[in-house]
Computed example of a mutant assay.
Amino acid sequence: MARDLIGYGGQWPDLRWPNGARLAVSVAVNLEEGAEQQVGDGDPQSERMGEVLSVVPAGVRDMGQEQIFAYGTRAGIWRMLEALEQHRVPATFLMCGRAVQRAPALARAAVAAGHEAAAHGWLWRPHADYASRDAEAADLARCAEAIAQATGQRPRGFFCRGAESAWTRGLLLEQGFRYTSNAFDDDLPYHDPAHPGLLVVPYALDSNDMKFFHPNGFVRAGEMVDYVADALAVLLAEAERGRPRLLNIGYHLRIAGRPGRFRAFEGVLEQLAALGGRIWLARRAEIAEAFAAAVPPAAFTGTASTTRP
């Protein structure tokens, strides 16, 4: 597979988003709780990453970790849905299939509030670790079906934990997906020349509340608010110079849904709402379609500068 280290090469398309702004902003909320690996759910191991690293021995049920995740769906989601409604911010909910199957009412509530349902894998796991194409295809279809059954909305977009497999993008096309977000390499969507018809809507791990769970990341809620403000300032300045941009901001129910971190969510929503028409707040499927309508595949395909097997 070719690595493209050039991308747009400093020559971006003359793109304005549907409201006339040059900067689009995507707020993504991850719904993973109940789909993380837990021995108590029959998985071979339990997820180790939570408020602290798990100290429960491998192969033993970790009820504390289960409860840390359950906070997101029992309490965090309602706090976050209320804030999204209050500030009139549309979001994309990245939904794991097993989480939706276990709590379909939560997925329905998000979609009923006007948010997009996108696929986040059957389990909260990297798709790069699938041993076969057939196994990945089955889980991808299983995830999409669970979301469709719960919400009435078939997901058009996909993002998994970690990285895709060599098969993922081909499977996405086969199963009718429009875009993938497993990309951290640009400030603008792009076409995947190896998979015509599939758009890449990049995601970001820096403007993401997962950094509260990582060393040298965010500690106080205001740190994330300030970080996003800095990102907005840089991208707005570039947008004013005619350069189209996309900012991705990611959240998790069990992380930013906690009272001590909730201002990291609400404070950013306040900033976004205050910017008005200077930005285009949109769901990821809308961003994909707006980009596709404005930038034909042949216009900017990128040039692979370095390859690896």
Rank of each mutant, 00 (worst) to 15 (best):
A24M: 13
P193A: 00
A138Y: 08
D185K: 01
T306V: 13
R48N: 09
A144N: 05
G222Q: 12
A273R: 14
W78G: 12
P196I: 02
E240M: 03
V219N: 15
A91C: 07
W78I: 11
R154W: 06
T307N: 08
G34L: 13
P13M: 05
L5K: 02
V268E: 11
E270A: 14
G50H: 06
S305E: 08
H191P: 03
G250W: 10
N248Q: 07
Y251L: 12
A131T: 12
Y227W: 11
P202L: 14
F300E: 01
E47V: 07
M210K: 09
E289G: 04
G242N: 11
L53F: 05
A138S: 13
D185C: 02
A163F: 00
I287V: 12
E164I: 00
R3H: 13
A274F: 09
P244Q: 10
D41V: 05
A194R: 00
P90M: 13
S305M: 10
L236S: 05
E223A: 14
M63Y: 02
A229T: 10
F300I: 01
G121F: 03
A24E: 09
D62E: 07
P202M: 05
L188G: 01
R3K: 03
A294V: 01
R16F: 09
A183P: 02
A83F: 08
A264C: 09
D14W: 01
W17N: 06
A274P: 06
F158L: 03
A35K: 03
G10F: 06
A110N: 02
A150V: 02
R308P: 00
P57R: 13
P215A: 13
V25L: 07
D226C: 10
S207E: 15
P196R: 04
V268G: 06
A58K: 03
P309S: 10
I77P: 04
R169L: 01
A137K: 05
R98H: 11
R102G: 15
S26D: 08
L275S: 08
F262C: 04
F69P: 08
F158H: 14
L81A: 15
E66Q: 06
N19K: 12
A70F: 08
P296E: 09
A28R: 09
A285S: 07
R243N: 09
I77V: 15
A83T: 02
V111F: 12
R156W: 07
E51D: 09
A109T: 12
G97E: 14
A256D: 08
L31G: 01
A117S: 07
E85K: 15
E116Y: 00
T180N: 12
A141D: 13
R241C: 05
V111R: 06
G242H: 05
N208D: 12
G42E: 12
P296T: 09
G42K: 09
G64E: 15
M80A: 09
R74F: 15
A299F: 00
D187W: 00
G267T: 10
Y227P: 06
V60E: 14
Y227L: 02
I68D: 10
A70N: 14
P196C: 13
L123P: 00
Y179D: 06
M63E: 14
D230I: 08
Y227N: 04
S165Q: 02
R169K: 07
D187E: 13
R263P: 02
S207A: 15
F184Q: 03
S165M: 08
F265S: 04
A194D: 10
A28P: 01
F69T: 10
A194S: 14
F291W: 07
R241M: 13
